[in-house]
Amino acid sequence: MGTYIRRRLLQAILVVWGVSVLVFFLLRLAPGDPVLLLLAETAEPAQIAAARAKWGLDKPIYVQYGVFLNRALHGDLGDSLFFQEPALGILLERMPATLQLSAAALLFSLGLAIPIGLLSALKRDTFWDYLGTNIAMLGQAVPPYWLGIMLILLFSVNLHWFPTSGRGTWRHLVLPAVTLGSVLMALITRLVRSGMLDVLGEDYVRTARAKGLREQTVIIRHALRNILIPLVTVVGLQLGALFGGAVITESIFAWPGVGRLALQAISARDYPLVQAAVLVISVIYVFLNLAVDLIYVYLDPRIRYQ
């Protein structure tokens, strides 16, 4: 077990390092000079050179990477060119908003997907199953940004139930959470349905029924519990996609989170901020996956790692 954790930890670190290389070199190869974008058009050549030297942009690219990596290991991801503040600080400041939105989206998708998936599986090949699977497929086919716009159109512009944008009360949270959670909802619905269909045919479910347990107990205690593992896997893997989806959702609803910040940083060619954003999100994602792998052992005693 200890060896397994160590090996997975090493792999995770390797992956994070790979991401840092990928992001660093990719953004440096970009056309467009960040110094020229930031300084006034009237800047003298001497001023430009001074700014370049100040940000270390005058050194060879591998030296820049070395400096970047060394500082990153000490928790310094550089200063944002635009905000003139430490990039990590700006990110962490926006992180609660994104976490709140992601958590709400996750709750929405689980809260809707588990009942729909259960109903579909239990009433297989009926109208309800057909409806449930169609909702799931629709959730995967709707572009989230369009869903967001249509929700704004219906619930904000026409019905005035929820505000169109911004963060504040719980009302601000509803539409972005539904928008962001729609894809995950669809995935989980399908997973719960197919998982339940498999499990319901198992001997232990028949045994549980034969014992005379109430159907409710059979479903929840004996069947639903067994689809927890694939559920945790998918949720863990999809959290990364959730962060990614936050880029679009946050910019539609002007939600002041990391995703919107990342998009703004990319269009402003704010290299340090983009790097920091992608790195931080990737680190969170990689370690979430690690956590998911380790949670397995507790969820399913049958799994034993050597």
């Binding site: 792999q11 992956v15 790979g18 991401v19 990364g240 990319i266 999100i281 990737s282 994602y285």
Partner: peptide, 19 residues
């Protein structure tokens, strides 16, 4: 594959498209 999967796809795509 792991490295590619560690970066949220849309974020990576946005970054590359910006470049």
């Amino acid at each position: 594959v792991d490295i590619q999967l560690a970066v949220p796809f849309i974020l990576l795509a946005i970054a590359i498209m910006a470049v």
